[in-house]
């Protein structure tokens, strides 16, 4: 099995009239948490969706455990997706289902587990994210932070080996954001899950990352450990991590 769990090689992607990715090269080691930072609209989420096969590159390859995701047929894609979990920016909980049904959906669809056992797993995953006893609630009755945590429980239901986080702390108050950050870090340390998180929340990035990569103008502009990134002298990276409006990056 290759050392890299996830590898992008020369990935180009065009959405509508905009070329979003212009030759992205990036690899994520097994058990590593890589945080991708970049400005809004820089293509971070697009990058993430390539890993799970929601988007296919126009040019280049995305390999997961050495397998080119774009070359997989529907059945193979299904089996590779069972090893992955993805936390979407807004949670993306299914409105028509209660929280418990959301969390247990993949188990009901893909495993022969009896209903009682599924309910136990659902309760366990909800407890893991601090949402015990919310099984019967509708997603519409949850706060933003609770939605994200419930979505995280759903993503973890199948015990994935790879986790993808799309803006895990965006829109949350600092305390709830810290709860999510700690949870992601704890999953990383306890279970050794390979993760990619995309965010522009630098506090979150420093907290959860083993390495940080900056996506800028469709390419990986810089990669380094959180310490290396904090000490960088690169003007673009410096301006971004300091959140300054003055510098080479112009307001959009």
């Amino acid at each position: 099995m290759p050392d890299s769990a996830i590898e992008f090689q020369g990935v180009w992607k065009r959405l509508g009239t905009k070329v979003v990715l212009r030759g992205v090269d990036l690899s994520v080691a097994r058990g590593e948490c890589l945080v991708v930072i970049g400005r809004s609209g820089s293509g971070k989420s697009v990058l993430l969706k390539h890993v799970v096969g929601l988007l296919q590159p126009d040019r280049g390859t995305v390999r997961v455990n050495g397998i080119d995701v774009a070359s997989l047929d529907e059945g193979e894609l299904l089996s590779i997706r069972e090893q992955m979990g993805m936390l979407f920016q807004g949670g993306a909980l299914f409105d028509s289902m209660a929280v418990g049904e959301n969390v247990g959906l993949a188990l009901r669809e893909h495993t022969p587990l009896p209903e009682r056992q599924i309910e136990e797993v659902v309760a366990e995953k909800l407890a893991l994210v601090g949402l015990s006893g919310t099984e019967a609630q509708r997603p519409s009755s949850l706060s933003g932070g609770m939605k994200k945590r419930a979505a995280l429980a759903r993503a973890l239901a199948m015990n994935p080996k790879i986790m993808l986080y799309d803006e895990p702390t965006t829109g949350l108050d600092p305390i709830t954001a810290d709860v999510i950050n700690r949870l992601i870090r704890r999953l990383q340390d306890r279970l050794g899950i390979t993760s990619i998180a995309v965010t522009h929340d630098m506090r979150s990035a420093y907290h959860i990352a083993d390495r940080i990569a900056m996506l800028h103008e469709g390419r990986i502009h810089a990669v380094g450990t959180p310490d290396e990134i904090q000490q960088t002298r690169d003007p673009i990276l410096r301006q971004f991590i300091e959140g300054s409006s003055e510098g080479p990056l112009l307001p959009t």
């Binding site: 096969g53 409105d95 669809e109």
Partner: peptide
């Protein structure tokens, strides 16, 4: 359409559900 714009369809695919 609402499920599409709130990424629920993407989430469904990610869970391996067609």
């Amino acid at each position: 359409g609402s499920m599409r714009v709130t990424e629920q369809i993407d989430a469904m695919e990610t869970l391996g559900i067609s």
